[in-house]
Design a protein around this nucleic acid. Sequence first.
DNA 1: TATTGTTATACTCTATAACTATA
DNA 2: TATAGTTATAGAGTATAACAATA
Lengths: 143, 143
Amino acid sequence: MTVTQDVDLELAGELRVVLGRLVRRLRAEHSFPLTHGSVLGRLDRAGSTSIGDLATAERVRPQSMTQTIADLEAAGLVARRADPADGRRTLIELTEAGQRKLFEDRARREGWLAQAIAEDLSESERRLLARALPLLERLSESA
Amino acid sequence: MTVTQDVDLELAGELRVVLGRLVRRLRAEHSFPLTHGSVLGRLDRAGSTSIGDLATAERVRPQSMTQTIADLEAAGLVARRADPADGRRTLIELTEAGQRKLFEDRARREGWLAQAIAEDLSESERRLLARALPLLERLSESA
DNA sequence: TATTGTTATACTCTATAACTATA
DNA sequence: TATAGTTATAGAGTATAACAATA
């Protein structure tokens, strides 16, 4: 139990509390689930992917991802395609509407988070946040 | 629509995605709701507080906070006390068990977040995260 | 027999609406 | 009439369990 560890506990506690508030706030402002936007962005970057892979990447169960994809498909934002190599797998890809949505969403995010970043943070603070983001990313993927 | 704003949109998008994954991860590892721990911590710092004030601070509806407090009370972690000055208000305070729980929780958080911080981040990265936390805090409280 | 995905169902957390009691 | 809190109910998001189809 080193001094460093105490600091880590403190950090972890504060981070947890802040995350809760930020996410509730985001959910309230943002109409659609965090996962939906996240999946669209991932498909845009990674191209067509299987449901199972998406589930693993987003850290949800395959069944939940099935539901998410069903929602996105109903909205016409993604399309399914049978994997020619493996009849069990279904490849998911972004439709044109999905790409448009992704683009529009970038504007909609101006909603408050981008605006809060622009208004409440100084230039140097924004740089600091940008540098801290990859750390959060790594924490979220930590084994 | 300045260059800075484009950067903000980018930041906002990435932050949103990362938050989603982190919170799902936290929920999976951590047994109880983020709000519960957050409320206990707040009571510990601020002393007895009304349900409405807690709701405002945590950015949930008073009805939701009523439920949260009912849960915490059922678990013996908080107690109610009538406000001597205003018969409508109920003051909530931490019980001894609540303080113990809060203390234990600090150890439990070693679960993975603190551990991830300790193992996956370097000393300088931890310092960076610590500096970025107040920024996230401010964003979560942005009007 | 193992893996991919689906359907059915339940749980958790928060929201809205309607109500009671005090100011 | 306005405010603090409660009860009842619904909704969103994700989980577990059981199943079908393919490997």
